[in-house]
């Protein structure tokens, strides 16, 4: 896989991995009329009295990679974290609006967060494997959700193969995950998220703490995974966004520092032919 530049985005970026990805015309952006996996409507998040994001409305397409880009502090993480209710952990955080997954607003306080988090997994900026063996990391989620011990071996192997990590770790499954390289740890974290078979995987700058080769691996993996999962990736790396994503949302901040979405569309459009001046300034590097 070659490092694509901004202008051939989406073309050379898709690896010829033998995944079951439906063939998609290169560079054509999203396939025609993709189904919406999560319909976000008027999402607003406050931390105490501070409004971090305001009125975000965005349809996350199923089985595609949605990139969220924008300057630091514009609320990218906040949006993503509200989708699997990690915002519940922040005292004083208030989330309003809707995020409809299969007809249900998952932002309502009454919904079962365990179920939401099971259906919408998350990978964090810094690899955070448990200080347990590689095997136990992957098996953690399935064990929680009642997979029987005798079925675990198979689940772990299948998941690690799916995460293209199996060949690297199959001889040391019972060694500490912390002995892996940063990039491998992050792919293990992706595998750990995959193991509970979520529909959506949120990734908040998954490669920002990883070296270039490791980053490449993660990008290849993401391209593979979109056949099975809906992926939302936050990134500061324009080239990465253009390489891995089908659609891109650009966020920025108001004068009062509240984040909002400026533009949303096929990645190729956002990078080559943005409608908004702010987007153009940002993707061409003229921002800030």
């Amino acid at each position: 896989m070659t490092l694509a530049t901004q202008h051939d985005s989406g073309q050379s970026s898709l690896p010829a991995a033998g995944s079951a990805a439906p063939p998609r015309p290169p560079g054509a952006g999203p396939a025609s009329a993709p189904a919406t996996r999560i319909a976000i409507h008027n999402l607003t998040v406050h931390y105490g009295t501070f409004c971090a994001v305001r009125n975000v409305t965005l349809d996350i397409p199923a089985n595609q990679v949605t990139a969220i880009i924008g300057p630091s502090g514009c609320g990218k993480s906040t949006v993503v974290r509200s989708l699997n209710r990690m915002t519940d952990l922040v005292p004083g955080a208030r989330v309003s609006g809707e995020a409809i997954l299969d007809g249900e607003n998952i932002l309502r306080p009454e919904v079962d967060v365990v179920n939401v988090r099971r259906r919408i997994g998350m990978v964090f900026q810094r690899p955070n494997p448990f200080p347990k063996s590689i095997y136990d990391n992957v098996a953690y989620g399935p064990r929680l959700h009642g997979v029987r011990d005798r079925d675990l071996d198979e689940v772990v192997e299948r998941t690690l193969r799916g995460a293209a990590l199996w060949d690297e770790v199959k001889d040391k499954l019972h060694q500490s995950a912390l002995a892996l390289s940063g990039g491998q740890q992050q792919r293990l974290c992706i595998a750990r998220a995959m193991a509970v078979e979520p529909e959506v995987i949120l990734m908040d700058e998954p490669a920002s703490a990883i070296d270039p080769i490791g980053t490449l691996r993660i990008e290849e993996l993401i391209a593979d995974l979109r056949a099975t999962y809906t992926i939302v990736i936050v990134t500061h790396n324009m080239q990465q966004a253009s390489r891995v994503s089908d659609v891109t949302a650009f966020f920025t901040m108001d004068e009062d520092r509240a984040g909002y979405m400026v533009e949303f569309g096929p990645t190729i459009e956002i990078f080559t032919n943005p409608r908004n001046q702010l987007t153009e300034d940002y993707v061409s590097g003229r921002f800030g």
Binding site: N84, M86, L89, V114, N115, R117, R118, G121, M122, F124, R126, N128, P129, F130, P131, K132, Y140, G141, L144, H145, C189, R192, A193, V196
Partner: peptide, 26 residues
């Protein structure tokens, strides 16, 4: 690190399981 707590909760673990299976062992 609180990142371990987040990792566990994000997998759909209840708070008590997170303490029992991840944080206390760590």
């Amino acid at each position: 690190p609180s990142s371990l707590r987040e990792a566990s909760l994000a997998l759909g673990a209840a708070e008590w399981r997170t303490w029992r299976n991840v944080l206390v062992p760590a």
